[in-house]
């Protein structure tokens, strides 16, 4: 797996969504997701509205539908959960195609299915329109702890390097007649993992030395991230998305104050 994983999600395009500041996109994605999760499961129309919004965003961002569909397969285990719930849930039951299904369970399964799918699609749109580096810059500007954004930055930088080392070690192992099948490989695999850790840790020490040699004293200089932060206009444009979602929620969400 390793290879290509580290930058597989970003879809290079020039679209208004791509050019939006990363911190705006992160906040928008989070707010949109929370709105979706907060929507009562019976509000089918509202979910339809959200789906249309996601679709519209995908079109504006020029993210291919096939790409979205393929990537959203990551959600498959939860689809299975959703399919199972009607059998497990308690409460009144209906007969459907000769099966006795729980009404509550059907709603529950639908709930997981629709919220999970919309959530994955929103996250995919975020990942497709924002490079990994920009996402970290965005988190940094949102005052995420520097310790975490920096660790993430180093992680992404060296993921490929480590995956390459792992691949080379595996080839070396197989070349000496190790049989990479089933349980028999587990020892070679795991001691390879131990070696990989040693290499990772020792590389960490060397990276630190190289950083120290260039004057590092524990903080990355702020000047590195000084380029264009979000403007008020970008924030306003971004805020429109969760606002529309909230309006959809209020209109079709089945709350008492529904007009």
């Amino acid at each position: 797996m390793g290879a290509g994983h580290a930058h597989a999600m970003y879809v290079h395009q020039h679209s208004p969504v791509h050019h939006l500041a990363p911190e705006v996109k992160i906040v928008v994605a989070l707010a949109f997701t929370i709105t979706v999760v907060a929507t009562p499961r019976e509000a089918v129309v509202a979910f339809g509205g959200y789906a249309l919004m996601v679709l519209a965003l995908a079109v504006v961002a020029r993210v291919p539908a096939a790409w979205l569909a393929k990537r959203s397969l990551i959600e498959l285990p939860f689809v299975a959960t959703a399919l199972l719930l009607p059998f497990f849930a308690s409460g009144p039951r209906v007969d459907l195609l000769g099966l006795s299904l729980s009404v509550d369970g059907l709603w529950g399964g639908w709930n997981i299915l629709v919220k999970g799918t919309l959530g994955v699609l929103i996250a995919l749109l975020l990942a497709a329109t924002t490079s990994a580096r920009d996402l970290l810059v965005g988190l940094d500007r949102l005052r995420a702890p520097q310790a975490m954004t920096q660790i993430a930055m180093f992680m992404l930088r060296y993921l490929e390097v480590l995956a390459d080392e792992a691949r080379r070690m595996r080839i070396a192992r197989v070349s000496r007649l190790d049989d990479p099948r089933f349980l028999w490989q587990i020892k070679g695999f795991a001691s390879g993992l131990g070696t990989l850790f040693l290499r990772a840790f020792e590389r960490g020490e060397r990276v630190y030395l190289a950083m120290q040699s260039r004057g590092y004293t524990g903080r990355l200089p702020a000047a590195l991230h000084a380029d264009s932060t979000a403007t008020a206009r970008q924030w306003a444009a971004g805020a429109a998305i969760p606002l529309v979602a909230v309006v959809v929620l209020l209109l079709f969400g089945g709350y008492p104050w529904k007009p």
Binding site: M153, R157, Y158, R206, S213
Partner: peptide, 14 residues
């Protein structure tokens, strides 16, 4: 200025 042997150790930023 020290240039280390493995440039991957030295180049750590995106």
């Amino acid at each position: 200025g020290i240039v280390f042997q493995d440039p991957d150790d030295q180049l750590f930023l995106p």
